[in-house]
């Protein structure tokens, strides 16, 4: 392989990364802008961050988003895990193909359709739109993602672990909580995080199913932008980016460390 940096390679990398990150960098930079005009640099300042925390509307929306995210991700994780267990374990029941297709259909379903159909449902059964309906809608949206993540782990799960536990005297329920669940826990946790992130940044479905008093952060930002972008919004977005980035980096560092430690352990074990 040729490892030298040709002019072509450098240009491609610069262009590629610029394409991906220039908008985000601009947003972050302008969140520290002194001027009220979003596109004119007026000097460094953190005043928009201060005013952000005094903007009751944005703070309320953030709180709504966190509550919706935590509740919907948790419920979706439980349901998605159960669906994944059923689909990998009971391979011979009638209608399995249909069932598995139906669990995964929302993955490719356009969000507008999911949102609209949920709205129609809530109206039909006379459910007042609010925190409850957004949460339910997000559970519908994210459950299938959790199911996919957990199922891919379960496919490689060694069933003889469960048999060994039962052989040693653990009844099925105990086996599930003492053996199966701890072993697949990393997949469940990443399923939860995926579900939480999806709920956090969903705008379309939330717009359809939310009601008064349950405005989520993406909805709030979107509605404010229509009135003109303020540096406050830039600050809010920068904080969101920071949270997501820290989360992703922390997760990958922990994973990498664990992997390295594991390899070292295995080498040590082979030696002696």
């Amino acid at each position: 392989m040729n490892a030298t940096w040709s002019r072509f390679n450098i240009t491609s990398i610069v262009l590629g990364f610029a394409f991906l990150y220039l908008p985000i960098v601009l947003l972050v930079v302008f969140s520290f802008n002194e001027s009220k005009l979003v596109t004119v640099w007026g000097g460094f300042s953190t005043k928009w961050y201060v005013s952000l925390f005094h903007n009751q509307g944005l703070m309320d929306a953030a709180w709504v988003t966190v509550r919706v995210g935590v509740i919907s991700a948790t419920v979706a994780t439980v349901l998605g895990t159960l669906a994944a267990l059923t689909l990998t374990r009971y391979t011979r029941f009638r209608g399995r193909m249909l069932f598995s297709g139906m669990v995964f259909a929302p993955l490719v379903m356009p969000e507008v359709i999911t949102g609209l159909s949920l709205l129609l449902l809530f109206v039909a059964i006379g459910m007042d739109r609010g925190l409850m309906t957004v949460t339910l809608a997000h559970i519908t949206l994210t459950m299938c993602f959790v199911a996919v993540v957990v199922q891919s782990r379960l496919v490689t799960f060694d069933r003889s672990l469960e048999e060994a536990a039962m052989d040693l005297g653990a009844p099925p329920v105990k086996t599930f909580f003492q053996i199966t669940l701890p072993v697949i826990m990393p997949a469940i946790v990443s399923g939860w995080m995926l579900a939480f992130t999806l709920s956090l940044d969903d705008l379309v479905i939330a717009s359809f199913t939310s009601g008064p008093g349950a405005t989520t952060l993406p909805m709030k930002i979107y509605s404010q932008v229509r009135l003109g972008v303020t540096p406050e919004i830039n600050a809010a977005c920068t904080i969101l980016i920071a949270i997501v980035a820290v989360g992703v980096i922390a997760a990958s560092v922990v994973n990498k460390r664990r992997e390295v430690q594991r390899q070292l352990d295995e080498q040590a074990a082979q030696r002696g």
Partner: peptide, 20 residues
């Protein structure tokens, strides 16, 4: 009689040690 009530124990081919 289910496996968890039988007075026999098994050593598995894959060993099936609990990894956690």
């Amino acid at each position: 009689i289910p496996p968890y009530r039988r007075p026999v124990n098994m050593m598995f081919q894959s060993y099936a040690l609990f990894p956690h």
